[in-house]
């Protein structure tokens, strides 16, 4: 993958080591270190996971296990716009599952996928208690709520056309 290949090699690994230099083995630093990497690159490249493992003194397999266990860590670069689909119960009651089907069909991807042109990705998000906006999605973290199904179709089409949805 294009973006991933730039996130490898000695220079990249050096940068990651610098980024996580303050973290220590034997304690509680794995998740904070992974958050830091995720925040910096928008995902956790494999090479970075290996460097984090070395820094906090854990086998790389265990670190990778943790990364894939938690749903908010990505292992691939994000799309230009990530559609966070709220899976919560208030959204569900108000047509949230239909919103999901619309985004999947319009974008031609499944939950967790990205369009080939990298314009849009679908992410299963969890309820954070903004339920007066149900049904809702987040476009790169920004709320679009009280959606009608027609709204969902229009947003998906705008994303396909390369608009950021802002």
């Amino acid at each position: 993958m294009r973006t991933q290949s730039t996130h490898d090699g000695p220079a990249f690994r050096r940068a990651v080591r610098e980024l996580v230099a303050a973290f220590r083995p034997g304690g509680d630093d794995l998740l904070p270190a992974l958050h830091k990497v995720h925040h910096e690159y928008g995902y956790i490249p494999r090479a970075a996971a290996e460097e984090v493992a070395r820094q906090v003194g854990l086998p790389a397999a265990r670190v990778w296990g943790a990364i894939t266990f938690y749903s908010e860590f990505r292992t691939e670069p994000p799309a230009d716009v990530t559609v966070g689909w709220c899976s919560g119960p208030a959204c569900r009651l108000k047509g949230g599952d239909r919103v999901r089907r619309i985004f999947e069909v319009e974008l031609g991807i499944g939950m967790g996928g990205k369009t080939v042109d990298n314009r849009a990705g679908l992410h299963m998000a969890q309820c954070n208690g903004q339920c007066e906006l149900a049904p809702m999605v987040w476009l790169n973290g920004r709320e679009r709520g009280n959606l009608s199904m027609a709204d969902a179709v229009r947003i998906a089409r705008e994303l396909k056309a390369g608009k950021t949805g802002e």
Binding site: R101, V105, S148, A150, A152, V153
Partner: peptide, 10 residues
């Protein structure tokens, strides 16, 4: 038809 209801809405 995926039963999304968008048509009935509009």
């Amino acid at each position: 038809c995926i039963r999304c209801d968008a048509c009935r809405e509009v």
